[in-house]
Amino acid sequence: MIGELAALSTALCWAIAARLFRQAGGGFSALCMNFWKGVVTFVLLGLVCVFFVPAASLPASGYGWLLLSGVIGIGIGDTCFFLALKRIGDSQSVLVTETLAPIFAALLAMVWISEWLNAWQWLGVAVVILAVDMVIKSTRRTSPHITPSAGYLYAAGAAVCQAVGAVISRDILTGYDINATEAACWRLAGGIVMVALMMLWRRERWLPKFNPGKRAWCLLAIATLLGTVFAMYLQMLGFANAKAGIVQTLIATSAIFSLGVAALMGDKIHRSTLMWSLVALVGVAILVVS
């Protein structure tokens, strides 16, 4: 039960953080924001590891896989997510990313670590895919100012990267004796290096284009604490105690949490979006209980 509770807590943290990242990100490029939230999180979790977590002893290949997990899931995946945030907003970005990621994770887990889906789980996959497709179509009709093509592609790319990172992490955490905090630090290291290389290649600014102001920095700090420090640890704790497909599926409930956050912030939630979001949640529930 620890893994399931950790996954649900991750979903709540990420739903709140997504809105805060969007509000704080006016002066930050996607890569710049991804880099600095990764650096801050690495420092904080690194201090925890140094003072409270005994060092693990993994073969070089084990550390290499964790680094690769971070390169894909954090370096590329989070950058795609931030790009989606700027184009389609937090509710739609979270909805598409976190409902597609469990499907990709479940399929990849079948191949990678032999976690097979049964007939009910395949039904859940079909329900989620249908619901996400209908949400996207209803959003295009009701929000013509949104440029969906690039935004939804970035969100789908983030989902693929999350799934790959999830399955690799699950494989390492179950195959070796390593604490979730230390594993998170290794993943972050890989993600930070990847983002730094992309910034150098694109000649991106390392600081915001303009001074965002104290409020934006405070929002970014809170979002990093919730969406990266807490969420990263909780996510790895989930992977250590539950199957990758189940954990990624429960994290997908951040799509529903995100709609709740949007409603509390005064955003109008269209009836069709809400209805199909609930259908997506039914698909997620089928995947969990089957």
Rank of each mutant, 00 (worst) to 15 (best):
F35V: 11
W36K: 03
W36R: 02
G38T: 02
V39Y: 10
V40R: 00
F42I: 05
F42N: 01
V43M: 13
V43K: 08
L44H: 03
L44Y: 07
L45T: 05
L47H: 10
C49K: 12
C49G: 04
V50R: 14
F51G: 09
F51S: 12
P54W: 10
P54F: 13
A60C: 11
S61I: 12
G64R: 07
L67T: 07
G70C: 04
V71F: 10
V71E: 05
I72N: 12
I72E: 07
I72A: 08
I74Q: 02
D78F: 08
C80P: 01
F81M: 14
F82Y: 15
A84T: 08
K86F: 04
K86Q: 12
I88E: 06
G89V: 03
D90R: 02
S91T: 13
S91R: 14
Q92M: 15
Q92R: 13
T97S: 13
A101M: 15
A101R: 03
P102I: 00
P102V: 05
P102Q: 09
P102C: 09
I103V: 15
I103E: 10
A105S: 14
A105R: 07
L107V: 07
L107M: 14
L107N: 01
A109M: 04
V111H: 01
I113Q: 01
W116R: 05
L117Y: 02
N118E: 04
N118L: 02
A119N: 02
L123Q: 04
A126M: 15
V127Q: 05
I129K: 03
I129R: 03
M134L: 13
K137W: 03
S138A: 11
T139R: 09
T139Y: 00
T139L: 12
R141D: 00
T142D: 07
S143N: 11
S143F: 07
P144Y: 09
P144H: 08
I146A: 01
